[in-house]
């Protein structure tokens, strides 16, 4: 079982692979975004078209799920960065896994529940903020007792399940993808000598392609559900 390098700093526990992966991918996202929008023109060039398509895509997700126009404006950037960032983090583990001894240094940060829970928590905190800004703190909490007051605990549980499903769906998909890829590479390939070694290559390739697809779908689902939760908070039912 590979372990990531864990260290303590200021009384907090840090996992090095997650930090390396997320920082690396943040840099890549930033670089790609800046590269795509180097020359911004009224008549768009090819790179700008890609950027505008991405923005249109994430704006579409926001528009479909958030009916409040004011909240949409603030969520547009959040959805865009979240989508691209999670997409890149999902793909990182597919082509890059750096191991040194028993410690793993680079893998998909999203193949780790702490990462996905961080992002899910961020989204839910954002939805709380939007809800409180929209209705005021008092009536925001009263919304949990709607339509009847005995539903309050159920509504509270719903928040927790929202958090868990949002984070664990992403984590599960990416983690499973990496586990299967590791299994193909480490266990299946050397099991019967040359035959399985040859067989493992296309198998790994197919699974990698499929994982790219899964990573994209999961990034899309994560952003969509984030917007659904925020949208639910800013509309009165």
């Amino acid at each position: 079982m590979e372990q990531s390098f864990v260290f303590k700093f200021l009384g907090l526990t840090f996992d090095l692979s997650g930090i390396i992966g997320s920082t690396l991918m943040a840099a890549v996202v930033l670089f790609v975004c800046i590269w795509l929008s180097r020359k911004v023109e009224m008549k768009p060039n090819k790179k700008q078209n890609i950027m505008e398509y991405l923005i249109d895509f994430t704006d579409g997700i926001v528009k479909d799920n958030v009916s409040d126009v004011d909240a949409r404006k603030h969520l547009s950037l959040y959805a865009f960065v979240l989508f691209i960032y999670i997409w890149f983090m999902n793909q990182l583990g597919l082509f890059l896994e750096v191991k040194a001894g028993d410690n793993i240094f680079v893998k998909s940060p999203t193949a780790d529940p702490v990462t996905t829970m961080s992002f899910a928590m961020m989204t839910l905190l954002l939805s709380f903020t939007f809800g409180m800004q929209k209705f005021g703190t008092g009536s925001y909490w009263r919304n949990y007792a709607e339509p009847v007051s005995f539903l309050f605990p159920i509504n509270m549980i719903e928040e927790i399940t929202n958090f868990l499903t949002l984070s664990l769906r992403l984590y599960g998909n990416i983690y499973a993808g990496e586990v299967l890829l590791t299994l193909i590479g480490n266990s299946f390939a050397p099991s019967f000598g040359v035959i399985t070694l040859v067989l493992a290559a296309p198998l790994a390739m197919i699974w990698q392609g499929f994982s790219v697809f899964i990573g994209s779908i999961q990034a899309y689902v994560f952003v969509t559900l984030s917007m659904v939760y925020v949208g639910k908070k800013v509309t009165k039912e």
């Binding site: 840090f14 996992d15 997650g18 920082t23 960065v81 960032y85 961080s118 961020m122």
Partner: peptide, 16 residues
């Protein structure tokens, strides 16, 4: 590792 959570939030904020 709560440290990572904080790190992710900071990185994401800077990225935003």
């Amino acid at each position: 590792y709560l440290g990572n959570t904080i790190w992710y939030l900071i990185v994401f904020a800077i990225l935003l």
